[in-house]
Write a protein that binds this DNA or RNA. Structure first.
Lengths: 396, 396
DNA sequence: CAACTTTCTCCACTCACAGGACAAAGCCGC
DNA sequence: GCGGCTTTGTCCTGTGAGTGGAGAAAGTTG
């Protein structure tokens, strides 16, 4: 089970690996165009990478008018495990070295069951993926958890919605179990990395990635790198005050953004509205399922229900107001909206855009796209794979 | 007048120059301890720097139990010009290569006079400093302006309080006039760099520097570097909504932070209070001067005036509330408060602290100092000198 | 004055890297 | 099918960066 994956010996090799990861198979000549090295030096480093087995040469490419080139690609046998632990479900995916998803499992789960129970589940899901022939072993695993993480150690710290996880050595424990390198990060940061790698944020160096699910968080990418803050809690915008003297929040304060709009808050408001007889559409759905979720609200809105539309619009206004402040402060080049409530789609986006464009400075909003994430539920696991591949593809 | 200052030839030389700038004179041996180079290579690079004249060897240091070392120091004749253009005044200072202020002038001035008039003034102030024997010429100049700057080009963009400056080629124009390299940045960013270099933020990699003067801005340092945003407007927090449906702001919106608390807003509120007969202290000062400023409010508060104290406290609450949001979002390791209103001192700080510690997450505030800037009015010019020295002390 | 420290210089050796020459392997036109 | 031409990849040599050790220079201490 334990695999001793080789690591690049120097920065050149690391850069070559990342070029191959992000650009796919390439010839030596093409690689030479993308890296600041002479062809001779490049050939030496490629040969060394071939020796380690991290990359392989498979066959000849079609001619482009001259001698045919040898295709160099990352070892197609490399496998990364991407794990995205949410508040109410967990995603586990296997990718190849180019971070393409080969297999993906999703299970409902309550993070409050605690780390031991959750990881038992995660490991069995990983085992199932392995058993289906997708992987013999893993060369690295990235883990996302819904709370702040002391990043260098890979340990959750004081996570509000994850009692029992505080200080649990996630990185160390999983590294033991899986027999491979493991990196841990906040789930929102991973979503941002996912969209940066393969989604709407490709080639954007400074952007915000707002994830609205059970709670609300924001991934911050500055200068191409994730900003995690000094204690790993950067981007925790759920408890910014959105409404003075507003609704009480689980954190003890009042008027927190998360108390006014999030998957949980939206469901609560929808149930209230249904019970007050404000919406037949919502009431009938409540009667049918015994409960309501953001999906029900989205469906009701799509069916033209005015109350559902109001809920979405008001929530979007709240979030938009907070994002407007963050845009003024951070001046990003892009804002990505993702998470469970993206099903609310265009109505939500319109409300957010209205607020941001109205309240932030023209200079900051002049050329600022505000868009939905492109990867949906796979953003987290792709980001997780990206996180660990960045680690594995760096000099030991 | 034109001086062709040499530039370091490589990254090693640049690092050596910065070590000498930040750590003062040093022997070759001491430098060797701080840089990752063998002594032989180090000696080569130091010799080359000596040849260029950027550094000089002056005399022998006291023995530490063996052969006495040669003191290596930055050329004591190097001179940087630091310029901090505020809304209502301008600071010009001359520093040596170690960024120590050798001379400092301050003049009241209205930035709305436009770039031509302002730079005429700045150049005459610089000439006066030169004439007093502090400098023969300048090896670089850093300029701070109270608005967003397209940093690579050194051009102000869409500055709200600086009509006439939009697109003015500050960097190019001043570089021509002064005959030396020039860098331009937002004044708040320079204040942050000043406090980072020589003030309370030494050795802090992630911090916020809130400047409350005529307006309100925030310098953002992430990973040791200033974050300027994609259009150079990052940190422009004056127009974040602090009060829903609050006071009308010059920007067209309502409830902006700046409309509720800033040097200008505080003066306005104090005049109102005096006219309404709420405070005899303020009324008498108003009668005496015909107007009130933040200094009057500070004095009144110091004299025990309840109304003045209330104004400060309420303003601090507003600012604190916004900062609380930024702290949750950015998770800094330090918050510095500076600018013209720092005269309000402890009362202001106490109000800000209360809000931040109450509203932000414990994890983000647990070990978060919120302090006044240490450098006062010199932070800007020191930051300006630091900016240009970083540029001059980097490979050409 | 001998023994020990610290600082600085000199020299030989290694290694990274560039760049050109050249071979291999394809295309195309005649 | 046979030269030109193009592209790809390899080989070889020269250059300069950098290390590490030997040793000289210049101190202190007993």
């Amino acid at each position: 089970m334990r695999r001793m994956t080789a690591r690049p010996a120097n920065a050149h090799q690391a850069k070559l690996l990342r070029l191959l990861r992000d650009g796919g198979p390439n010839s030596r000549a093409q690689l030479g165009d993308q890296i600041d090295l002479s062809r001779s030096k490049l050939a030496v480093e490629v040969d060394r990478l071939l020796e380690t087995g991290l990359v392989v040469a498979d066959g000849l490419a079609a001619s482009r008018g001259g001698r045919r080139s040898h295709n160099i690609r990352l070892n197609p046998g490399l496998r990364f495990l991407g794990v995205d632990i949410g508040a109410t479900s967990v995603d586990v995916a296997v990718t190849n070295a180019e971070l393409e998803i080969l297999g993906h499992l999703n299970q409902p789960m309550d993070v409050r069951e605690g780390p031991v129970a959750v990881f038992e589940r995660v490991l069995s899901m990983a085992a199932k993926l392995r058993a289906s022939g997708l992987a013999e072993g893993f060369d690295g695993a990235g883990i996302g958890v819904p709370g702040p993480v002391r990043f260098p150690e890979g340990v959750p710290v004081a996570p509000p919605i994850m009692p029992g996880w505080d200080g649990f050595p996630v990185r160390e424990a999983l590294s033991q179990e899986l027999g491979c390198p493991v990196m841990v990060d906040n789930d929102v940061n991973l979503m941002a990395m996912g969209e940066q790698h393969a989604g709407v944020a490709r080639s954007v160096g400074d952007f915000l990635c707002v994830k609205i699910g059970t709670g609300i968080g924001c991934g911050i990418v500055a200068g191409g790198d994730v900003h995690r803050g000094v204690t790993g809690s950067a981007g925790d915008i759920g408890h910014i005050q959105a409404v003075p003297d507003g609704r009480p929040c689980a954190c003890g304060n009042r008027g927190c953004l998360e108390a006014h709009f999030s998957g949980a808050a939206l469901a609560r408001d929808a149930v209230e509205a249904a019970q007050q007889g404000l919406s037949e559409e919502l009431a009938s759905r409540l009667a049918a399922n015994g409960t309501l979720t953001a999906v029900d609200v989205a469906a009701a809105a799509a069916a033209g229900d005015a109350t559902a539309l109001d809920l979405i619009r008001e929530g979007g206004n709240r979030v938009g107001q907070v994002i407007a402040g963050l845009v003024s402060f951070f001046n990003p080049g892009l804002v990505v909206i993702g998470g469970g409530v993206t099903g609310l789609g265009h109505n939500l986006l319109a409300a957010i855009r209205t607020q941001v464009y109205r309240q932030s400075l023209p200079l900051a909003t002049g050329n600022l796209p505000i868009v939905l994430g492109e990867l949906g539920p796979t953003a987290g696991v792709i980001g997780a794979a990206r996180l660990i591949s960045d680690h594995v593809f760096s000099p030991a």
